[in-house]
Design a protein around this nucleic acid. Structure first.
Lengths: 335, 335
DNA sequence: AACGCTCCTGAAAACGTTTGCAATATAATA
DNA sequence: TATTATATTGCAAACGTTTTCAGGAGCGTT
């Protein structure tokens, strides 16, 4: 119950707290014999430094905060996994919180993390976030922030992403090269830069390949399975003809796949489908779905290592503040 | 950069730090007018309490530690999500760490969390963990621990699980009732109580239904997809006949499904398959796989709420220390 | 013997809170 | 008016570290 403190050790050995502290931190100005004595006693009594006290003194927590929309999404879970790995190896702990795609909750999370005096923050912003003041405030207070994937404009800090525009452009180009003529795009919320870029990539690929860009082939919606079902149903009900669907992400693509199969259409015979993220499910569904691989684990590792460099402020990070990780079109049965 | 402290507020208003503290904590002995003055100034200056200082004083951190094998597993991600939700609503923060199925890493994690003076710990133990001293030590130092899913014997604390034995028993009983005669069990590491119980449930169901329990129909292996592939290949290569497979978990079941399809067998015509956990993938593969639904999110919520009760030590928890959450056999195309 | 040097240790302040107790002022009572 | 109760505030210590500064001991050199 009662923890052993430096003072306890000091009393036992008739030394001062300062000596104990120095010995345990391997300060060279302490007599090796004394040092050994202290280390031995510490081990014997099971002394564990009180990180709260140490942090209070040091004025930082050695903790990295994470805010993601939802932990249970495969992509975010993997990113967190990567962050934790790097953080752990650098002596940081990781505090996780989820915004549940709610701006208000995101604000509260950011604030709560600041109260814990986190050394840095890694964020993928919520779908509903429009105002960025809560992040701006933290930055002004000296908290380093790195954004990944769901990044946003208007904040001068590091961002780790893939090239959504190009990935999207390439995917659509591939569809066209394969012979598809009327490609629907189920787009995501446009306040998310990544969704916007995916949309723009789609649009440009359409234009660059001599097709007409048709408004009716684009539906703006959410990012879940049922959004996919709903959006594609909408298109079909309107009698709009199409032979391929490029979805803003995998759940939406799967939604499309479900509905399309349900009404008896053939994939990819009647409709080709491309998703985004390489969620494990896309590999196992039938037909397996072509998608764009986002290196989630790597993204977490990269974000964490940048953040830690920022926190330590040692090496001046060179190059652009937006780090682009390689993505890859994974071609499967659905195209 | 520089945070606003209570002392700053005190200086601004010509009051003492104690008064400020009390006012902010809504202590009734402070004059309402003064209180308002203080609150206003605090808001104006953007004061945020320093949790590190507060925690040091209070001798606890209001932080809940989590140790899971791997965050990116759907099941664990969902549990974490549930824990975070409950913790957040009770004013706790959640520190996440992963053992990567490594006992040594689990020990280090436990220690690191203790150094952070976490108020409590929620754990699902690693596959390779045999020695439990690191948990026992924490408990002796007053850290409350709740185990979930991957629990272990020999520690007197709360555990949240499903009834692995019964779930397993019922699944096998269902296979038998459906007409399958020779049911293979791909079992997991037997140091994990849950795996052991799944094995025992299988065995008992076999016996209770008048079948012979045959050693050769059981393979002990790992819990990943490739373990499933390897184990079932082994069985087939040995020329052992079977018409159904009960796998210790979903990845293993999917491994079986992959290999079985590859060599041209029909599911469930030639081989029926049952997994365990209701991983979203099992629903989307073709054929979809029968599995046992584990209420992951609920498990996280339950674990967290028990832990928080323990921490607050207010309500005496009644009843057994092992909480069994309902599981459910989800019948799909593979059986 | 006086000096300077190195080596080691201690005292005390600081990090930002909270809190028991004391102190003051004001109001209520005798 | 004297006394007591009540309301409000301040003082100071404490939580467990780290760190600056100072100082003592021992030793060799002049």
């Amino acid at each position: 119950m009662n923890q052993v403190t430096i003072k306890d050790l000091a009393r036992h050995l008739g030394l001062s707290a300062s000596t104990i502290s120095r010995a345990l931190n391997d300060n060279p100005s302490i007599n090796p014999k004394t040092k050994k004595l202290i280390h031995d006693l510490a081990a014997k009594l099971g002394y564990e430094p009180n990180v709260m006290a140490r942090n209070l003194k040091a004025q930082h927590s050695n903790q990295i905060g994470i805010i993601v929309p939802e932990i249970k999404h495969d992509f975010f879970a993997k990113v967190i996994s990567g962050i934790e790995e790097v953080a752990y190896n650098s002596g940081f702990t990781v505090i996780v919180s989820q915004s549940n795609e709610d701006e208000e909750r995101e604000k509260l999370n950011a604030n709560s993390l600041y109260m814990n005096r986190i050394s840095g923050l890694i964020v993928s912003v919520s779908q509903t976030t429009n105002n960025l003041d809560h992040f701006r405030n933290l930055m002004e207070k000296g908290v380093k922030i790195v954004f990944f994937d769901r990044i946003c404009d208007g904040l001068d800090t590091y961002k780790v992403v893939i090239d959504d525009y190009k990935s999207s452009y390439d995917a659509v180009k591939y569809l066209i090269a394969t012979g598809y003529k009327r490609i629907v795009h189920l787009a995501g919320p446009q306040n998310l830069l990544s969704c916007k870029n995916r949309y723009l990539g789609y649009k440009q690929a359409i234009i660059d390949n001599g097709y007409n860009f048709e408004e009716e082939l684009v539906v703006f919606g959410g990012m879940h399975e049922d959004d996919g079902i709903r959006s594609i149903k909408n298109i079909i009900d309107k009698g709009i003809k199409f032979d391929a669907v490029f979805a803003v992400n995998d759940p939406v693509a799967i939604g499309v796949s479900i509905l399309v199969k349900k009404i008896g259409l053939n994939i990819p015979g009647d409709v080709a489908i491309i998703g985004f993220s390489n969620n494990p499910i896309t590999e196992f569904v039938t037909p397996s779905i072509t998608t764009i691989d986002q290196p989630a684990y790597e993204m977490g590792k990269k974000s964490a290592s940048i953040l830690i460099s920022l926190i330590k402020g040692k090496t001046k990070l060179t190059g652009s503040k937006t780090i682009i990780l390689p993505s890859k079109l994974i071609i499967r049965e659905s195209t």
